[in-house]
Nucleic acid binder design. Structure first.
Lengths: 350, 350
DNA sequence: TTGAAAGCGCTAACAG
DNA sequence: CTGTTAGCGCTTTCAA
């Protein structure tokens, strides 16, 4: 299939290239007769305007970059990212955007990729997930003036845009659920990786407090959202003999369950576990199906793209600290809890 | 950070923009003195040449598109894709390429995305995974003259480039392994989705034949690589009372195991299962650790990028039917089998 | 309502 | 060795 240019299409239709451009861009004031003629030629030739040339003159590429930074390659073990990517991809498709994916496997790569992306005008904006982030990279990014949206609240949330779920409420709900089941000695496996972990821990503390239960550092174990870390955290926690444990993501919850199995403990008969994320794999998990707080991961991806689009279009004040929290968590989690309560009743007899 | 142009850098360094361009592109014949002066200005200003302008003149974007077509959103349930993407991403990073990801969620999206990508010169080439493919899309793609590399042998492999593992050998190895463990009544869960499935089935047949075992259609059940399909296929297969089953990917193997559990059968005491892919999750799987044929997924991604690069650079004859098969499978699988044999011995007593 | 012309930032002859 | 010049394919004034 031959590649045509505006000029050639113009010649074929007996008009100038400017007119063809106007037709393509739906400029309103064109004689219908001419429009039709041009459109006919376009249809017949299968002409598509060159995206690069368009970008050069408009200084817009319609490409959004998604950066998933992490020194450990294991990130991909966590299905969480698959869902984030899926949500973002979907939103890009509906908004006519191209998604460029940057998986960072090493610090060196990180430097190169950021360099390549930042000064070159290749992307209109960036979405960055809440993985490990280092100061150097953040500094480069902020200096670049590129529109950026973070997924998950950044550590230094000065003047940065981000989308996130309400982690405090999520932590609260998870803990309260365990309390409502009658447990009092409740442990937590929390990530020290970023603010989300802190917030979920905060929710946990508040729930304990609101129900008159004491908080004890002994019942807190730390992980990095990986399965392995959940496993080790649980091994440590077992010594404190908790009745139930809140793992602040599903992947760590799975690791915890494995540790319990190895120790010959049954879930949930001996120790109950609740997760956070509601990964589809959690729903499918057996022995036992993991209770978990629903986090609208896909939705988060969609929102990130939409927010980024606004930033790119200058629809949000740059100087203004813009956050964008989801409340959807409440409804979902409430429904979830109801279902859990129902299930709890049903299984109480067995 | 101000964005500079070649012209401005030239002015700052007291040279023409052409000279700056030469410095950037490491053109050899430049007076060292001038080179240094220009480089100093570049370093000081943090200048990065505009990628879009470069692409316009070179008609190369250094962007490779990865298309993962599938009408079912569930593709993402299969960790296989995460590893493919990871491999491709890594290879792009080392080759200075940008990876654009196109996840196709619906037929309409498929049409739009293909349209947007094909005629516009946005990508230098395309990598397409071995998911569902429809004829319309393939026709558009082939007509586009875009360099394309498939991952997994396409149905109509006329004049198309692809990378794939040796599925026949893989199927053979899996089956032979089961035979070597003493099983004679061996079922297979095979995908009807593409040629890989057929090839694995072919290997299965050959292994049976080579060991004097009869092939029976009754012991063949079909799936689409999804967990659910593995589950249902197994339910069907159970009636035939096989001693062992070869699931042609790990995800279906997991589904099969679930079906067996539900039926109160133990794995592998009552029915042995072997998979195909060697997903890390397979290694981690318990009750029991899944035996599986190693498929170098990441490596496949790397090779796909490298092959695509060659095609883009015109280093492979266009007219020539180019295939690119991996042999690595052999060595790996052999090692794998050894280990399995050892394990089999150890567990034989228990 | 349309065409001519300038120019986005860069590379690549072509002179010198 | 370096500067001048002519585009790459498109959008967008500016006139007509």
């Amino acid at each position: 299939m031959k590649r045509y240019t505006l000029e050639e299409i113009g010649k074929l239709a007996g008009v100038s290239r400017a007119t063809v451009s106007r037709v393509i861009n739906h400029y309103p004031h064109i004689r219908p007769e001419i429009r039709e003629r041009v459109e006919a030629v376009i249809a017949q030739t299968g002409f598509q305007p060159n995206a690069v040339a368009r970008s050069l003159v408009s200084s817009r590429t319609n490409i959004v970059g998604l950066i998933i930074p992490s020194t450990v390659e294991e990130v991909f073990t966590d299905p969480y990212y698959a869902y984030v990517i899926n949500g973002i991809s979907q939103s890009c498709n509906t908004n006519g955007l191209i998604l460029s994916l940057f998986l960072i496997h090493s610090l060196e790569e990180e430097r190169n990729v950021i360099q390549a992306v930042v000064g070159t005008g290749l992307v209109d904006g960036l979405i960055i997930t809440a993985s490990r982030r280092n100061r150097e990279m953040l500094a480069t990014l902020l200096a670049s003036q590129l529109p950026i949206v973070f997924i998950g609240q950044p550590d230094n949330d000065t003047n940065t845009h981000y989308v996130d779920v309400d982690n405090v409420s999520g932590g609260y709900l998870a803990t309260e659920h365990l309390i409502s089941l009658g447990y009092e000695n409740i442990g937590i496996i929390v990530s020290y990786m970023n603010k989300s972990g802190e917030a979920r821990l905060d929710g946990y503390k508040r729930a304990l407090n609101d129900h008159g239960l004491p908080f004890s550092e002994d019942l807190v174990a730390y992980g990095d959202y990986s399965l392995e870390s959940g496993y080790h955290a649980m091994k440590q926690l077992i010594k404190r003999k908790p009745q139930a444990v809140f793992a602040t993501n599903d992947t760590m919850a799975f690791g915890a369950i494995r540790a319990l199995k190895e120790a010959g403990l049954r879930v949930p008969e001996d120790i109950a576990i609740i997760g956070f994320d509601d990964l589809p794999s959690a729903q499918r998990s057996e022995n036992p199906a993991l209770s978990t707080i629903h986090q609208p991961i896909q939705q988060t991806g969609l929102d990130a793209v939409e927010l980024l689009l606004k930033v790119v279009n200058g629809e949000v004040q740059k100087a203004q600290h813009q956050s964008f929290r989801q409340r959807w968590l409440f409804a979902k989690a409430a429904a979830h809890l109801e279902r859990l309560a129902r299930e709890a009743k049903n299984t109480a007899t067995s």
